[in-house]
Simulated assay, not measured.
Amino acid sequence: MLHHTQGIVLGTIKYSETSIIARIFTRKFGMQSYIVNGVRSKKAKGKTALYQPLSLLDMVVYHKPEKDIQRISEAKFSVSYASIPFDPTKRAIGIFLMEVFSKVLRNESENEPLYQFIEQSFIYFDHQEERFNNFHLQLLLKSTNFLGFGPENGKDLIYQLEEAGFHYSLVENELALLDRLMNENIGANISIPNTFRRDVLDHIIKFYRTHTDTLKEIKSLEVLKTVMTS
């Protein structure tokens, strides 16, 4: 049966000489795997661009609940990015978030509020011309509320990490910055030193790991750290 849905591309793997399997977080069905035949052939005329990291797609798909891999009947961009693929910092942030979400959402079923939040956040991110160095921190912190394990505030986040066996000694100003990242709108003017930004990211990753069992190694993390300090 055919269904219409939107989706966010969270990774692809080669399936054959001309095909791929795309992992897509969809509005209607949650995380799904789709085989896309012939997309890498010479006759495909650039269709691989549809399945680049974080592409926002409008799709008509076949969906059979008993199958692990579905098929796409039609796909087109719902929104075309203007800056994320071309700005080195934005691209590094995007690839990092793609890797994190591809693992955290691996078994996520339909979650339309989370889908809508992530989609709208990336559209906003694409249009940001400044103050986007905290985007990944705010997106990950705010997404925890849609995933069911959002901390009440910065103090609660640190408390949960300490309960899990991690130990931190943050000063009051750092807790206040955590609270601002959680509560203020994405893109807010929150001035954070690079060293503390790295610390916050470390806290967030460990926080996710205490609540999920799928976020192991993050290969893109070192690239992100390099780009964010250059």
Results as ranks from 00 to 15, higher is better:
113 P>M: 06
139 L>Y: 02
23 R>A: 03
51 Y>G: 02
135 F>Q: 06
74 E>H: 11
8 I>K: 01
166 F>H: 13
197 R>F: 07
121 S>Q: 03
64 K>Q: 12
192 I>N: 06
19 S>K: 04
71 R>N: 13
230 S>G: 15
169 S>P: 10
145 N>M: 13
97 L>Y: 01
45 K>I: 14
68 D>W: 04
184 E>H: 10
159 Y>Q: 15
116 Q>Y: 07
37 N>T: 15
79 V>F: 13
227 V>A: 07
118 I>D: 00
171 V>K: 13
70 Q>Y: 08
209 R>S: 05
194 N>L: 15
84 I>V: 12
26 T>C: 00
212 T>G: 01
3 H>L: 11
193 P>H: 09
9 V>R: 00
33 S>N: 12
47 K>N: 13
138 Q>A: 07
12 T>E: 05
76 K>I: 09
141 L>T: 04
106 R>I: 10
17 E>A: 11
69 I>C: 06
47 K>P: 08
74 E>S: 12
51 Y>W: 06
156 D>C: 05
105 L>H: 00
98 M>I: 02
227 V>E: 06
84 I>N: 04
163 E>M: 14
109 S>K: 15
173 N>M: 08
216 K>P: 07
175 L>I: 06
205 I>W: 04
213 D>Y: 12
97 L>A: 01
108 E>K: 03
14 K>I: 07
147 L>R: 01
103 K>Q: 07
228 M>Y: 08
187 G>C: 11
171 V>Q: 14
1 M>C: 15
219 K>Y: 10
170 L>V: 06
201 L>Q: 09
106 R>C: 02
69 I>D: 06
86 F>A: 13
87 D>A: 11
203 H>P: 09
83 S>C: 11
208 Y>N: 01
26 T>Y: 00
151 P>L: 03
197 R>S: 12
152 E>W: 05
100 V>R: 00
15 Y>N: 09
24 I>T: 00
135 F>V: 07
34 Y>D: 00
149 F>I: 02
33 S>A: 14
28 K>A: 06
184 E>F: 10
93 I>K: 07
203 H>G: 08
115 Y>P: 01
160 Q>I: 09
75 A>P: 02
9 V>L: 05
201 L>N: 08
119 E>R: 11
78 S>E: 12
